[in-house]
Simulated scan of single mutants.
Amino acid sequence: MRIRPVPGGYAFARNVNSVPLVGSEFAAAACHFPIVFAGGSPEQMMPAALLGLSQDENLFVDAEGRWAEDVYVPAFLRRYPFVVAENGEGEDFTVCVDEAVIDEADDAMPLFDADGNDSEMLQHAIAFLGEYQKDVRRTREFMELFAHHKLLVEKVIRLERPGNEPATLSGFSVIDEMRLNTLGAKTLQKLARSGALGLAYVHLMSLSNVQRLSARMDRKHQGAHGLH
């Protein structure tokens, strides 16, 4: 089996307005995106980067499928064309590949060598996916702390945009900063030692990027050519 990924191609992500994040990405992602939490219940929630303020619109991918210059690309997207199917609760996982990139031409990239072993390209992909899955497990641990201390509250973003219809975005949660500030010293110490407290404040600071997203959306809809 051989594949032909599109170099630097993010057209596959053009219609997603959020993607999952892991804790190790917070610092880089917070420079560009609002970080929120999404899931069916507080116990199931995971962090996500908001990439757009309307359904099915990623403001960081242009018409040619290029990612916006000098903007962080979440690891969830950098995994492509590979994804992971988890096998239970252990560290074992199954590697899957998007059928759209399979190409049997001789000049495409092989997944296996002549002896049936993983090619160098596939080895690198599996190593990346393995580290990513470790990050997912660590992220679930601090999310459990947020849920245990009831720090997550539902949020609705309403943007008043001069000359445009107000934009409303819902279906996600944020950290309740007032509740966070009233936690006892022992609880705060536990959150700090786990790294969760620092991530909570990075998340809160990232929410100011909502206005930057709004400005980017207005530029795009006003017929701006390309993303800058």
Results as ranks from 00 to 15, higher is better:
Asp98Ala: 14
Ala100Asp: 13
Ile102Lys: 09
Asp106Ser: 13
Asp107Tyr: 01
Ala108Asn: 02
Ala108Ser: 06
Met109Asp: 12
Met109Thr: 12
Met109Val: 13
Pro110Lys: 00
Leu111Met: 02
Phe112Met: 08
Ala114Val: 14
Gly116Phe: 00
Asn117Phe: 07
Ser119Ala: 00
Ser119Pro: 05
Met121Asp: 12
Leu122Gly: 05
His124Asn: 12
His124Pro: 14
Ile126Pro: 01
Ile126Trp: 06
Phe128Trp: 11
Phe128Met: 15
Phe128Ala: 15
Leu129Lys: 01
Leu129Gln: 01
Leu129Pro: 00
Gly130Phe: 05
Tyr132Phe: 06
Gln133Trp: 12
Lys134Ser: 15
Asp135Gln: 15
Asp135Met: 14
Arg137Lys: 15
Arg138Phe: 08
Arg140Met: 12
Arg140Asp: 09
Leu145Ser: 04
Phe146Arg: 07
Phe146Glu: 05
Leu151Pro: 03
Leu151Glu: 05
Leu152Trp: 02
Leu152Asp: 02
Val153Met: 08
Glu154Met: 11
Lys155Gly: 07
Ile157Tyr: 07
Ile157Gly: 06
Glu160Met: 00
Glu160Gln: 04
Arg161Lys: 04
Pro162Tyr: 02
Glu165Thr: 03
Glu165Val: 00
Pro166Ser: 02
Pro166Thr: 00
Ala167Cys: 13
Ala167Gly: 10
Thr168His: 06
Leu169Glu: 11
Gly171Leu: 02
Ser173Asn: 10
Ser173Lys: 11
Ile175Val: 12
Ile175Trp: 00
Asp176Gln: 07
Glu177Thr: 15
Glu177His: 12
